[in-house]
Protein backbone atom coordinates (compact mmCIF):
# COMPACT_ATOMS: atom_id res chain seq x y z
CA UNK A 1 0.00 0.00 0.00
CA UNK A 2 2.84 2.38 0.90
CA UNK A 3 4.44 1.73 -2.44
CA UNK A 4 1.25 2.73 -4.24
CA UNK A 5 0.90 5.90 -2.18
CA UNK A 6 4.56 6.79 -2.71
CA UNK A 7 4.34 6.06 -6.44
CA UNK A 8 1.29 8.25 -7.07
CA UNK A 9 2.63 11.02 -4.84
CA UNK A 10 5.99 11.17 -6.59
CA UNK A 11 4.45 10.65 -10.03
CA UNK A 12 2.25 13.68 -9.44
CA UNK A 13 5.13 15.72 -8.02
CA UNK A 14 7.50 14.85 -10.85
CA UNK A 15 4.99 15.70 -13.58
CA UNK A 16 4.01 18.92 -11.79
CA UNK A 17 7.65 19.96 -11.48
CA UNK A 18 8.49 19.32 -15.13
CA UNK A 19 5.26 21.10 -16.15
CA UNK A 20 6.44 24.16 -14.23
CA UNK A 21 9.86 23.84 -15.86
CA UNK A 22 8.45 24.15 -19.37
CA UNK A 23 5.67 26.64 -18.77
CA UNK A 24 7.12 29.26 -16.44
CA UNK A 25 8.81 32.40 -17.76
CA UNK A 26 10.82 32.89 -14.56
CA UNK A 27 14.31 31.35 -14.94
CA UNK A 28 14.70 30.64 -11.23
CA UNK A 29 11.38 28.76 -11.06
CA UNK A 30 12.30 26.72 -14.11
CA UNK A 31 15.73 25.73 -12.78
CA UNK A 32 14.48 24.90 -9.30
CA UNK A 33 11.57 22.88 -10.66
CA UNK A 34 13.98 21.01 -12.94
CA UNK A 35 16.25 20.16 -10.00
CA UNK A 36 13.28 19.11 -7.87
CA UNK A 37 11.86 16.95 -10.67
CA UNK A 38 15.19 15.20 -11.17
CA UNK A 39 15.44 14.50 -7.46
CA UNK A 40 11.83 13.26 -7.24
CA UNK A 41 12.56 10.80 -10.05
CA UNK A 42 15.07 9.10 -7.75
CA UNK A 43 12.10 8.11 -5.58
CA UNK A 44 10.98 5.68 -8.32
CA UNK A 45 14.34 3.96 -8.22
CA UNK A 46 14.05 3.63 -4.45
CA UNK A 47 10.51 2.22 -4.77
CA UNK A 48 11.74 -0.35 -7.31
CA UNK A 49 14.56 -1.41 -4.97
CA UNK A 50 17.32 0.06 -7.16
CA UNK A 51 18.84 2.07 -4.31
CA UNK A 52 22.17 2.59 -6.02
CA UNK A 53 20.65 4.16 -9.12
CA UNK A 54 18.42 6.31 -6.92
CA UNK A 55 21.34 7.75 -4.99
CA UNK A 56 23.37 8.23 -8.18
CA UNK A 57 20.40 10.07 -9.71
CA UNK A 58 20.41 12.49 -6.77
CA UNK A 59 24.18 13.01 -6.78
CA UNK A 60 24.58 13.42 -10.55
CA UNK A 61 21.59 15.64 -11.27
CA UNK A 62 21.92 17.91 -8.26
CA UNK A 63 25.44 18.66 -9.50
CA UNK A 64 24.37 19.01 -13.13
CA UNK A 65 21.56 21.46 -12.41
CA UNK A 66 23.98 23.43 -10.23
CA UNK A 67 26.00 24.10 -13.40
CA UNK A 68 22.80 25.37 -15.08
CA UNK A 69 22.24 27.72 -12.14
CA UNK A 70 25.67 29.23 -12.59
CA UNK A 71 24.91 29.86 -16.27
CA UNK A 72 21.58 31.37 -15.28
CA UNK A 73 23.39 33.60 -12.82
CA UNK A 74 25.81 34.77 -15.51
CA UNK A 75 23.34 35.40 -18.33
CA UNK A 76 20.09 36.61 -16.73
CA UNK A 77 18.80 38.71 -13.93
CA UNK A 78 17.12 35.69 -12.40
CA UNK A 79 14.71 37.75 -10.30
CA UNK A 80 12.95 39.14 -13.41
CA UNK A 81 10.60 37.43 -15.82
CA UNK A 82 11.97 36.57 -19.24
CA UNK A 83 10.14 37.20 -22.50
CA UNK A 84 10.91 34.27 -24.70
CA UNK A 85 11.10 34.70 -28.43
CA UNK A 86 8.42 32.54 -30.04
CA UNK A 87 10.25 30.45 -32.60
CA UNK A 88 9.03 28.02 -35.22
CA UNK A 89 5.46 26.89 -34.45
CA UNK A 90 6.00 23.60 -36.31
CA UNK A 91 8.54 22.46 -33.72
CA UNK A 92 5.80 22.56 -31.08
CA UNK A 93 3.51 20.51 -33.31
CA UNK A 94 6.27 17.97 -33.98
CA UNK A 95 7.23 17.61 -30.34
CA UNK A 96 3.58 17.24 -29.31
CA UNK A 97 3.11 14.47 -31.88
CA UNK A 98 6.21 12.63 -30.64
CA UNK A 99 4.99 12.99 -27.03
CA UNK A 100 1.57 11.58 -27.98
CA UNK A 101 3.16 8.59 -29.73
CA UNK A 102 5.38 8.00 -26.70
CA UNK A 103 2.40 8.03 -24.34
CA UNK A 104 0.58 5.46 -26.52
CA UNK A 105 3.70 3.29 -26.57
CA UNK A 106 4.10 3.50 -22.79
CA UNK A 107 0.49 2.47 -22.20
CA UNK A 108 0.69 -0.37 -24.68
CA UNK A 109 3.98 -1.65 -23.29
CA UNK A 110 2.35 -4.05 -20.75
CA UNK A 111 0.85 -5.99 -23.71
CA UNK A 112 4.35 -6.84 -24.88
CA UNK A 113 5.90 -7.25 -21.45
CA UNK A 114 4.66 -10.85 -21.09
CA UNK A 115 7.25 -11.96 -23.62
CA UNK A 116 10.17 -10.24 -21.93
CA UNK A 117 12.60 -12.29 -19.88
CA UNK A 118 15.49 -10.92 -17.88
CA UNK A 119 18.80 -11.57 -19.65
CA UNK A 120 20.71 -11.09 -16.45
CA UNK A 121 18.53 -12.25 -13.57
CA UNK A 122 19.14 -11.04 -10.02
CA UNK A 123 22.05 -12.77 -8.31
CA UNK A 124 21.08 -14.19 -4.94
CA UNK A 125 22.85 -12.49 -2.04
CA UNK A 126 24.46 -9.76 -4.13
CA UNK A 127 23.66 -6.19 -3.19
CA UNK A 128 22.34 -3.56 -5.51
CA UNK A 129 25.74 -2.01 -6.17
CA UNK A 130 27.36 -5.37 -6.90
CA UNK A 131 24.64 -6.24 -9.41
CA UNK A 132 25.15 -3.00 -11.32
CA UNK A 133 28.89 -3.68 -11.31
CA UNK A 134 28.47 -7.27 -12.58
CA UNK A 135 26.36 -6.26 -15.56
CA UNK A 136 28.50 -3.23 -16.29
CA UNK A 137 31.79 -5.11 -16.32
CA UNK A 138 30.65 -8.23 -18.19
CA UNK A 139 27.96 -7.66 -20.80
CA UNK A 140 28.34 -3.90 -21.16
CA UNK A 141 32.11 -3.63 -20.72
CA UNK A 142 32.80 -2.23 -24.20
CA UNK A 143 30.10 0.50 -24.15
CA UNK A 144 31.21 1.37 -20.63
CA UNK A 145 34.84 1.80 -21.67
CA UNK A 146 33.85 3.73 -24.80
CA UNK A 147 31.77 6.07 -22.66
CA UNK A 148 34.74 6.51 -20.33
CA UNK A 149 37.01 7.44 -23.26
CA UNK A 150 34.42 9.89 -24.59
CA UNK A 151 34.19 11.57 -21.21
CA UNK A 152 37.98 11.76 -21.08
CA UNK A 153 38.05 13.39 -24.52
CA UNK A 154 35.37 15.86 -23.44
CA UNK A 155 37.31 16.65 -20.28
CA UNK A 156 40.58 17.29 -22.13
CA UNK A 157 38.74 19.43 -24.69
CA UNK A 158 37.13 21.39 -21.87
CA UNK A 159 40.48 22.00 -20.20
CA UNK A 160 42.09 23.09 -23.49
CA UNK A 161 39.24 25.48 -24.29
CA UNK A 162 39.09 26.96 -20.79
CA UNK A 163 42.86 27.06 -20.39
CA UNK A 164 43.49 29.23 -23.45
CA UNK A 165 45.06 32.58 -22.62
CA UNK A 166 45.10 31.72 -18.95
CA UNK A 167 48.89 31.77 -18.49
CA UNK A 168 48.62 35.10 -16.64
CA UNK A 169 46.65 35.47 -13.42
CA UNK A 170 45.39 38.96 -12.63
CA UNK A 171 45.22 38.25 -8.89
CA UNK A 172 48.92 37.36 -8.74
CA UNK A 173 50.11 40.44 -10.69
CA UNK A 174 50.91 43.88 -9.30
CA UNK A 175 49.09 47.01 -10.48
CA UNK A 176 52.08 48.07 -12.59
CA UNK A 177 52.30 44.72 -14.33
CA UNK A 178 48.59 44.79 -15.17
CA UNK A 179 48.87 48.31 -16.61
CA UNK A 180 51.89 47.21 -18.63
CA UNK A 181 49.99 44.24 -20.04
CA UNK A 182 47.00 46.42 -20.98
CA UNK A 183 49.29 48.90 -22.75
CA UNK A 184 50.93 46.11 -24.73
CA UNK A 185 47.57 44.75 -25.73
CA UNK A 186 46.39 48.20 -26.85
CA UNK A 187 49.53 48.65 -28.94
CA UNK A 188 49.04 45.29 -30.58
CA UNK A 189 45.48 46.07 -31.64
CA UNK A 190 46.65 49.44 -33.00
CA UNK A 191 49.28 47.72 -35.12
CA UNK A 192 46.69 45.38 -36.55
CA UNK A 193 44.32 48.23 -37.35
Amino acid sequence: MFEAIAFYLFAFLTIAMFYITVTTSQALYALTALAAGMIFISAFFFILGADFLGAVQIVVYSGAVMALYSFGMMFFDTTRELHEKQGNKYIVVGLATIAAVLVVLIFSAPILSNNITALYPMVEGAGNTQEVGMVLFTKYLVPFEVAAIMLLVAMIAGIVLAGKKMDASLTLMTEAEIKDMRKQKANKTKEIV
Binding site: D51, F52, G54, A55, V56, I58, V59, S62, N128, T129
Partner: peptide, 10 residues
Protein backbone atom coordinates in the same frame (compact mmCIF):
# COMPACT_ATOMS: atom_id res chain seq x y z
CA UNK B 1 19.66 1.08 2.97
CA UNK B 2 22.64 -0.68 1.43
CA UNK B 3 23.96 2.48 -0.21
CA UNK B 4 23.94 4.52 3.00
CA UNK B 5 27.04 6.64 2.53
CA UNK B 6 26.22 7.57 -1.07
CA UNK B 7 22.71 8.60 -0.04
CA UNK B 8 23.98 10.69 2.89
CA UNK B 9 26.55 12.55 0.79
CA UNK B 10 24.07 13.11 -2.05
Amino acid sequence: INIGILYILG
